[in-house]
């Protein structure tokens, strides 16, 4: 390769490769990307964890872990985990049913395009706007609440498990519904490729062997889809567990762990100290690490049946 062309290659890759004659100079093209992700992904994660294991004066300590003995923090962790689990299981089942139903639609038809787009919007565009929609639906004077009242004389908020914690929607039990609203689309996005990967030949094989629809699902569909199904379920757990915006827009009492983190921050940022949020971040990272490890194991099993 000529010196000039190598230099251009280096420049077009975003970095000035100074010594084009050297064979390894092209590697320098990765510098901007590496530097960016290092400074804005690795460093913040390390700093968050670091804040958890240092005292206010900056010395190393494990004392912050006493936060996990705090009853309200434990309760918030419990709420977060239970809510995410319930959301993951429910949306995995409902989403999987919808995925199978979508097989009836033409693969490149308008319905699939609309469902794909709507799923993407709803899956990543939740947050504040989703909270608004659910306040208008099942808040104290929401459309659904009023309809239940006028038609069945049932007060939605009287169904809340914790009567002292205000309206249903501002408790984890009520947040279940907005969380479902962004998790089912996520399930469709994550699970649809697996469902589409079911080969027609397998169905034909079952039919040739005299099997009906039930034996198809029992012996072919379910075993093949199982790893993708549980993998997608784990993904939903992870997304619900780390979701902040929806909960924060609904309530500012610290009932879920991400909201607790922000509250602790706003009482601490003045001094620039992030000890308690840091130690909670460690807790979240540990849970997410376990979850993502399980996800990768399942993905490896799922990969056998695809392609």
């Amino acid at each position: 390769m000529s010196a000039a062309s190598a230099a251009v290659a280096g420049r077009s890759a975003g970095a000035g490769a100074r010594k084009p004659r050297r064979r390894g100079a092209g590697w320098l093209g990765f510098t901007p990307f590496a530097a960016y992700t290092l400074v804005f992904m690795a460093v913040p994660t390390v700093l968050a964890v670091w804040g958890g294991v240092t005292a206010e004066d900056g010395s190393f300590t494990l004392a912050n872990f006493s936060a996990f003995g705090d009853r309200s923090i434990l309760k918030a962790f419990e709420n977060s985990i239970v809510l995410s689990l319930a959301v993951a299981v429910a949306s995995a089942i409902l989403g999987a049913i919808l995925c199978v139903m979508l097989l009836a639609a033409k693969p490149n038809g308008i319905l699939r395009v609309v469902v794909d787009a709507a799923s993407s919007v709803l899956a990543q565009f939740g947050g504040v706007m989703l909270a608004f929609a659910f306040i208008a639906t099942m808040g104290s004077s929401g459309m659904f609440t009023l309809w239940l009242q006028s038609t069945f004389h049932v007060d939605l908020n009287s169904l809340a498990p914790d009567k002292t914690a205000g309206p249903l929607l501002y408790q984890p039990a009520g947040m279940f519904f907005p969380y479902l609203y962004f998790s089912i689309p996520l399930m469709i996005i994550a699970f649809m490729p697996a469902v589409e990967g079911l080969r027609p030949q397998w169905g034909e094989a079952v039919a040739t062997l005299g099997g009906g629809r039930f034996s198809y699902w029992r012996h072919v569909g379910a075993p093949v889809l199982a790893p993708s199904f549980f993998g997608a379920m784990i993904l939903i757990f992870a997304s619900a567990f780390s979701s902040f915006a929806t909960a924060a827009a609904l309530t500012n009492s610290g009932i879920l762990i991400p909201v607790v983190m922000q509250q602790d921050l706003s009482s601490e940022t003045a001094s620039g100290v992030t000890n308690i949020p840091g130690v909670l971040a460690i807790g979240m990272i540990v849970i997410m690490a376990i979850v993502m490890w399980a996800y990768s194991v399942l993905q490896r099993r799922a990969a056998r049946w695809q392609r």
Partner: peptide
């Protein structure tokens, strides 16, 4: 990777940065 790091964790780290 950002899918598996909760945004709140990153946000805590962004504050000193």
């Amino acid at each position: 990777l950002p899918i598996s790091i909760p945004t709140v964790v990153l946000a805590v780290g962004f504050i000193p940065v």
